[in-house]
Simulated assay, not measured.
Amino acid sequence: MHMNSAPHLLTEDRAEYERILDDALRNAHDRPDLAAVGQRLNAEQLRTMALNATALITTAAAAEYEHYIKIREEMRAPTSVASVHNSVLAPAAGEAAERGAGFGAVIAVLAPVLAGTAALIFLLVGYILKMLSPTPAFAETMVAAGWFFGALTAAAILAAAIGLLITALRNGATQLPAEEMTGELPDEVARAKDAWRHAVLERGLLPFLRAALADPSADPKSAAPPRHVSRIPKVGYSGPDYSSPSEGSTAGQRPTFTSPDFTSPDFGGPEHQPE
């Protein structure tokens, strides 16, 4: 028993099939064999009929579609393997990077805050002490300490800004542009896709549309193909092959019978009477 079934059209390829159909209907008047579009059946009715008969139409390009999805899956396989590999190695490297990044972030945030707070306190206390009479001896020390922490605050803020700039530049260098992430298909996949599109159009859609336009009984809401469609290959199961017994074998043959030979008696005249 042999199976000649076409591969099922995947969900991700249904939109592409609809684009092929829409392009064919949009350019129908450029083809003399489809010039009758809009007379008895309009483009929307033909589109409904072709969508209802998607499985039948795409069967005409079964070989090209099978090759296309095979090449596409092979091209996707290395990306999947790399993703799994990265997902296995990412936790260990990510934990170390996270610890380092977390410590740096804490320092970058706390250093300016703490230094600025200390500078404010020392300057405020130092200038208040300098207003007293007599001025305490350590008032100048408090003011100097305040200015020191003020300078430290400015340096911490500058360091944090530089760190943020370096992080932004590093992330920008490792991030893929949008056009690269959604770029064109590899050449082999693109060729397989074009071959499938051409086969669907030339061997599936166009014969279907021509048959629908030529069949006066075609129903736009029916999923049944037009009666004149005859180029769609047969899909299904072929019956087992049965062979008749060989000529030299006697088993299973019907016995043959011959009728007995009867002879009529000899009749004659008196001269032929038995003695």
Rank of each mutant, 00 (worst) to 15 (best):
H8L: 11
L9G: 02
L10R: 14
E12S: 14
R14K: 13
I20Y: 01
D22A: 10
N27G: 07
H29F: 07
D33P: 00
A36V: 00
Q39H: 08
N42S: 12
A43I: 02
L46I: 06
A55Y: 05
A63D: 15
E64C: 08
Y65F: 14
E66S: 15
E66D: 15
Y68H: 12
E73L: 10
E74A: 14
M75T: 10
S80C: 05
H85A: 15
N86V: 00
P91S: 08
A92K: 10
A96I: 09
F103N: 08
G104F: 11
A108P: 02
A111W: 04
P112L: 06
A119M: 02
F122G: 02
L123K: 12
L123N: 08
L124K: 09
I128K: 14
L129T: 03
L129S: 05
K130G: 03
L132M: 15
E140V: 07
E140C: 01
T141R: 13
V143S: 04
A145K: 02
G146K: 01
G146R: 00
W147Q: 09
L158K: 05
L158Q: 06
T167Q: 12
A168Y: 10
L169Q: 10
R170V: 08
N171C: 00
G172Q: 03
L176N: 08
E180Y: 03
T182A: 14
G183I: 05
A190H: 05
D194Y: 00
A195S: 13
V200I: 13
E202A: 11
R203D: 13
L205N: 03
A218E: 06
D219F: 09
S222Q: 07
A224E: 15
H228V: 00
G236S: 06
Y242R: 12
S244D: 12
P255N: 10
T258S: 14
T263G: 10
F267N: 08
G268Q: 03
G269R: 04
P270H: 09
P270T: 07
E271V: 04
E271C: 10
